[in-house]
């Protein structure tokens, strides 16, 4: 039996940069429990995003095992993984990744469309979430008509509409000023308090230190896991 909601066992990933193999994750093992609040810090290029993408099943490891909800995922075909992503995982990217032609509401309702939720239900749900995130005035705005903080809040709305078990945020405050960044972090932490497992990747210590559990990565390895202990290398 594997403990926890998320269990990574000796995950390795090597990218080819030109002809050169570049090991990005070196046999990373990690267990995360339901409801945890985790930050992953470390220098640029240390593999934080790659690790987060593994957890979010946006990427596939070269070797190792990934258990989600006590089920192995590594051997699943892409279509099944897509379903798991839709049902369990919400993603927030540094640059929001909103579709430029779609309004705030239309962007946020994409997961609901994929889950075959009807038009009226969708719009009701989005309206509720938007009012909670302070976006009610902005529902028909296009991304280019929104500030960075507003765009990130739309992305958060999109990540939480299907009430996922896990929220993965890759540098969610990277493009924001301090105030907007703090607002976004508070929103995410509020979601965590309501039971969602939250994992935030950042290179900003002030942001990273807010988490209950703090991981530090260097060169594709987790070198520190607090509170806990320095890992044996």
């Amino acid at each position: 039996m594997n403990p926890g909601l998320i269990c990574l066992k000796k995950i390795s990933k090597t990218y080819l940069v030109g002809e050169q193999p570049l090991p990005v994750l070196k046999s990373v093992s990690l267990a995360i429990n339901k409801g945890d609040y985790l930050s992953i810090m470390g220098p640029s290029g240390s593999g934080k995003s790659t690790l987060l993408n593994m957890i979010g099943m946006l990427d596939r490891p070269d070797s190792g095992e990934y258990w989600l909800n006590q089920k192995p995922t590594s051997s699943l075909e892409e279509e099944k993984r897509a379903r798991l992503r839709r049902d369990h995982i919400g993603f927030i990217f540094q640059n929001s990744h909103l579709i430029p032609r779609l309004s705030a509401t239309e962007n946020a309702e994409l997961p609901l469309i994929l889950a075959k939720v009807g038009f009226k239900n969708r719009r009701n749900k989005i309206a509720k979430i938007f009012s909670r995130l302070g976006l009610s005035e902005r529902e028909n705005h296009l991304p280019k008509q929104l500030s960075g903080g507003q765009m990130q809040r739309v992305a958060i709305a999109r990540a939480m509409v299907l009430e996922p078990d896990i929220l993965l945020a890759d540098e969610p405050t990277g493009n924001l000023d301090q105030t907007a960044g703090l607002e976004v972090m508070e929103l995410l932490e509020e979601l965590n308090r309501s039971g969602i497992t939250l994992i935030v990747v950042t290179h900003d210590h002030q942001i990273g230190n807010r988490a209950a559990r703090k991981l530090t990565m260097v060169d594709g390895e987790i070198v520190q896991d607090k509170p806990g202990h320095d890992l044996d290398r």
């Binding site: 979010g56 946006l58 892409e78 279509e79 897509a82 379903r83 798991l84 992503r85 839709r86 049902d87 995982i89 993603f91 990744h97 579709i99 994409l110 997961p111 994929l114 889950a115 999109r158």
Partner: peptide
């Protein structure tokens, strides 16, 4: 993005 949000290849 659609795939990250959970769209299948068929969709």
């Amino acid at each position: 993005l659609l795939k990250a949000l959970g769209a299948t290849g068929a969709e």
